[in-house]
């Protein structure tokens, strides 16, 4: 039985259709990423699946239970992290997670354990207002997990973090579904979806355009590879003359060659000793997004 079944969910705000008929299944133990630019409808979709918002149309069930109206039987089995840092004001990190633990009748010891697991032991007595962005997100995730839920929803847990803090958080996030827990995460970072998720649902304009594993998404993409060589290593005209090159143009990084047969083109370049500063880029989720929507991805 899938952990989450979403059937034709839709929600509009006035004239704006935030989510427009989304259907999706998430298997037990799966790590699903919902990827899309800001305003794609990710948060609205997530809030409907969590049971926070009443859908205009469609249904969602989690662990076989309907999520709307508020389902007291389901709530202890799901964990949520909302976009904002939803904390009790002026409590310390330890008091914070212990309070959340008490809401689920979880003993303090288990709460303290989670503090350790997210690496906040030395910040236990720091008030939540004084935590850094990354520490706050760690605490927020720990509060979502303190009662050991079967399904976890994380809404943009790495938003507004610097790249280093984001990467640090990935280590924590990547192990979340190891013990069979189902995780749904929204993000507008391509790399994050690629690293963390078993499957990625690409969302834009309130619709899910495609759902698959990151690798499969790129593989099915009929996108050319891009070979970049240092400026001056090869002329644009010469590059265009190489067999298999669809297009070549100059960019700030050098000359960019688009090709569907990167192996052969690289061999020719090697033969002519034109490989200075070479970089090869296969298709990315960004290309997938471009391919699906016809426009470039802007987070």
């Amino acid at each position: 039985m899938p952990a989450i079944v979403i059937d034709d969910l839709a929600k509009s705000y006035g004239d704006l259709s935030a989510v427009d008929g989304v259907s999706l299944e998430v298997a037990e133990g799966e790590f699903l990423g919902v990827l899309g630019p800001n305003g794609a409808g990710k948060t609205t979709l997530l809030e409907m699946v969590e049971g926070l918002r009443r859908p205009d149309r469609g249904t969602a069930t989690v662990l076989g239970l309907p999520v709307w109206p508020r389902n007291a039987e389901l709530l202890p089995r799901i964990g949520v992290q909302l976009q904002a840092s939803s904390f009790f004001e002026r409590l310390t990190a330890r008091e914070q997670i212990r309070t959340f633990a008490s809401l689920y009748s979880v003993p303090h010891a288990a709460a303290d354990e989670w503090l350790e697991r997210v690496g906040l032991v030395d910040k236990a007595d720091t008030r939540v207002e004084d935590l850094s962005g990354g520490q706050g997100q760690r605490l927020s995730i720990a509060c979502a997990l303190v009662h050991d839920p079967d399904v976890v929803f994380l809404d943009e847990p790495t938003a507004a973090l610097d790249p280093q803090a984001r990467r640090n958080l990935w280590d924590l996030l990547s192990g979340l579904n190891d013990s069979g827990r189902t995780v749904v995460l929204t993000t507008h970072y391509m790399d994050e979806a690629e690293v963390l998720c078993d499957r990625v649902a690409i969302m834009d304009g309130g619709r899910v355009l495609r759902v698959d594993s990151p690798a499969a998404l790129v593989r099915t993409l009929d996108a050319p590879a891009r070979i970049t060589v240092a400026p001056g290593a090869v002329g644009v005209e010469e590059a265009q003359g190489i067999a298999g090159v669809d297009d070549a143009h100059e960019s700030v990084d050098g000359v960019v060659l688009s090709t569907r047969t990167p192996g052969r083109v690289l061999a020719v370049l090697a033969e002519r000793e034109r490989l200075d500063g070479v970089r090869v880029q296969a298709g990315t989720l960004e290309d997938v997004f471009l391919d699906l929507t016809g426009r470039a991805y802007r987070a």
Binding site: E50, G51, L52, R70, A72, L75, P76, I78, V80, L82, Q83, A84, S85, S86, F87, F88, E89, F100, L103, Y104
Partner: peptide, 17 residues
């Protein structure tokens, strides 16, 4: 207001309380 701004009200709505 504070709990609405920080979405703490929403968060508590999703706890069994």
């Amino acid at each position: 207001q504070g709990w609405r701004q920080s979405k703490l009200l929403r968060r508590l709505q999703l706890s069994p309380v």
